[in-house]
Design a binder for these strands. Structure first.
Lengths: 205, 205
DNA sequence: GTCTATAGACTGATAGAC
DNA sequence: GTCTATCAGTCTATAGAC
């Protein structure tokens, strides 16, 4: 499958490959300039097709955004679940998500740009991010409640507050990290280390 | 001065009033949809003039953005300094900044939108936010170092790491808070309380 | 100081050929 | 599945009248 196979009469294999390329280019450009400022023409030209060609695969710009978010969710949740299944704590699993993202700055840019943009009510990703920010801190809170019951969480730490703080630290560090682009690595935030340090500061001993 | 005075032959007083109105409307719209998506026509129409009328006061869109940022810096730094002069700790002064911002959601939206947008190298506020994110954590770090020397900071807390975390918590909570708009207040993050809780968790006993 | 008119460029989406 | 051509809308900025 894939690669340089000539377009078959079905056109199917070529179509699949292009769909992936489009999603990849869209992640990149949405990250660079945000959803609203990104143009279908620019995304299309980056994968070597015209913008009506792109619209054959995704019927509208908003549909393309939905597909981008659905794909990120799929990839991330599989990797996260694998880390949890391997016995890592939730905090450590988060740190490993960050570790992977540091290697793919486009993903970090995507979520920083989109979460800020989607803050406004009319944005096509508004509902997505509202759901995400309702669910993620709640999941972390439940995890912290279990840790508290097992005596692992520091007794003076409130699970709900700490969950919010962990998510906030994650998001806030990404902005700092992006704005330090080009600095010598030693002067940039070490995001995975910072996340681990914060998690550790919530636990006993 | 100000108010319903008829346009004098100098046109000066009227001009000053309009400049303030434009800046206010720009803060609002830049916050709502970001700098790039905001249009001069929309800002102009919100203050009841045409867009060439607006461009008489600010020669370009980027100049308008600069003026908005300069004005926010002025207002915020005066208020922050007043709190410090009144004997409040830096952490408490930050919490009070947040307290004021909660009453003016447009300001929170402005900084969340712009800091995310300005992450990309070509953005007209890129240099501004790079400077800001180099200076603010450094100032907090110096403050924490003094607290450590006076035995107020918990001995296991690293000033530099904690400074970064405090700034990150501030930024991250703003995103959470904006995405919880419309929820009953009890379910929304209490940002000032969360900032105070985080600051307190860094101090001894 | 504010306006109308306009230049010149870009946008998302559609029609229809191949 | 991809193209060219095009529609109807948007944008920043400028020219020039009043």
């Amino acid at each position: 499958m894939s690669s340089a196979a000539p377009p078959a009469s079905t056109g199917y294999a070529r179509g699949r490959a292009t769909r992936e390329e489009i999603l990849e280019a869209a992640v990149q450009l949405f990250g660079e300039v945000g959803y609203r400022t990104a143009s279908l023409r620019e995304i299309a030209s980056r994968v070597g097709i015209s913008h009506p060609g792109l619209l054959h695969h995704f019927p509208s710009k908003a549909a393309l955004l939905e597909a981008v978010l659905a794909r990120r969710d799929e990839v991330d949740s599989i990797a996260l679940q694998a880390d949890l299944d391997a016995g890592h704590s939730l905090g450590e699993a988060f740190a490993r998500v960050v570790e992977r993202n540091v290697a793919r700055p486009g993903i970090v840019e995507l979520f920083v740009s989109l979460s800020a943009e989607a803050t406004s009510a009319g944005h096509p990703a508004h509902a997505y991010f509202r759901r995400r920010y309702a669910e993620v801190p709640a999941t972390v809170r439940r995890d912290f409640e279990q840790l508290r019951d097992r005596g692992v969480l520091r007794p003076d730490v409130d699970p709900a507050t700490a969950a919010r703080q962990l998510v906030a630290v994650l998001d806030g560090l990404q902005v700092q990290w992006l704005l330090e682009e080009g600095l010598p690595p030693a002067e940039r935030v070490d995001m995975p280390a910072a996340v681990r340090a914060f998690s550790a500061s919530l636990m006993v001993g």
